[in-house]
Amino acid sequence: MTEDEAWQAGRGIWKFNADRALAQDEVQIVNTEGLVLAVATITGISKHGDRYALEGELLRGDARVGKPTTTPPPVTQLRRLLLTSRFPHSGLKELHGLPIHHP
């Protein structure tokens, strides 16, 4: 999975508290082994019905990509995130240290 693919899979569309998401500076997309797949700054959110997607700038080539995350959970107040079925084989189990439950 490329950084771009990880960012697209992890950024949304989710049900989450928009204010809490906007209080964060960045997001790490982390796989089941705890390796960072992508890092992005959070610049905003977009609304999709009753769900949201993170908007931001992917930090391609960030030094943390491919290394174990050093950010202990919970880093953010985002909770009960659902990875959409668009990426059922992405291997994503965490977003910014918080569990993702596949539908």
Rank of each mutant, 00 (worst) to 15 (best):
residue 49 G to M: 06
residue 49 G to Q: 08
residue 12 G to S: 08
residue 11 R to Q: 12
residue 2 T to H: 09
residue 60 R to I: 14
residue 51 R to H: 11
residue 3 E to Q: 13
residue 2 T to L: 09
residue 16 F to A: 03
residue 28 Q to I: 00
residue 16 F to Q: 00
residue 12 G to R: 02
residue 57 E to C: 11
residue 38 A to V: 04
residue 18 A to I: 12
residue 47 K to Q: 15
residue 27 V to F: 08
residue 10 G to N: 08
residue 42 I to T: 03
residue 24 Q to A: 12
residue 10 G to K: 07
residue 40 A to E: 00
residue 52 Y to S: 02
residue 60 R to C: 13
residue 24 Q to P: 08
residue 27 V to I: 12
residue 34 G to V: 05
residue 17 N to M: 09
residue 55 E to F: 08
residue 26 E to T: 13
residue 17 N to S: 10
residue 8 Q to N: 15
residue 42 I to R: 00
residue 45 I to H: 01
residue 8 Q to P: 09
residue 8 Q to L: 13
residue 47 K to W: 13
residue 23 A to F: 06
residue 35 L to N: 10
residue 17 N to H: 11
residue 16 F to Y: 06
residue 42 I to E: 00
residue 30 V to M: 03
residue 7 W to H: 01
residue 1 M to H: 14
residue 14 W to Y: 15
residue 45 I to Y: 00
residue 38 A to L: 02
residue 22 L to K: 09
residue 2 T to G: 08
residue 2 T to Q: 10
residue 46 S to P: 08
residue 11 R to A: 05
residue 7 W to G: 01
residue 41 T to Y: 05
residue 12 G to A: 06
residue 26 E to M: 12
residue 28 Q to T: 03
residue 23 A to V: 05
residue 11 R to I: 07
residue 26 E to D: 15
residue 29 I to V: 14
residue 17 N to F: 10
residue 31 N to Q: 08
residue 35 L to P: 02
residue 7 W to F: 08
residue 39 V to E: 07
residue 60 R to M: 14
residue 30 V to H: 04
residue 29 I to N: 02
residue 23 A to Y: 05
residue 34 G to H: 06
residue 34 G to S: 03
residue 2 T to V: 09
residue 43 T to L: 04
residue 38 A to W: 02
residue 33 E to H: 11
residue 17 N to W: 11
residue 13 I to A: 14
residue 19 D to T: 12
residue 12 G to Q: 04
residue 34 G to L: 04
residue 42 I to D: 03
residue 12 G to P: 08
residue 19 D to R: 13
residue 7 W to M: 04
residue 45 I to S: 00
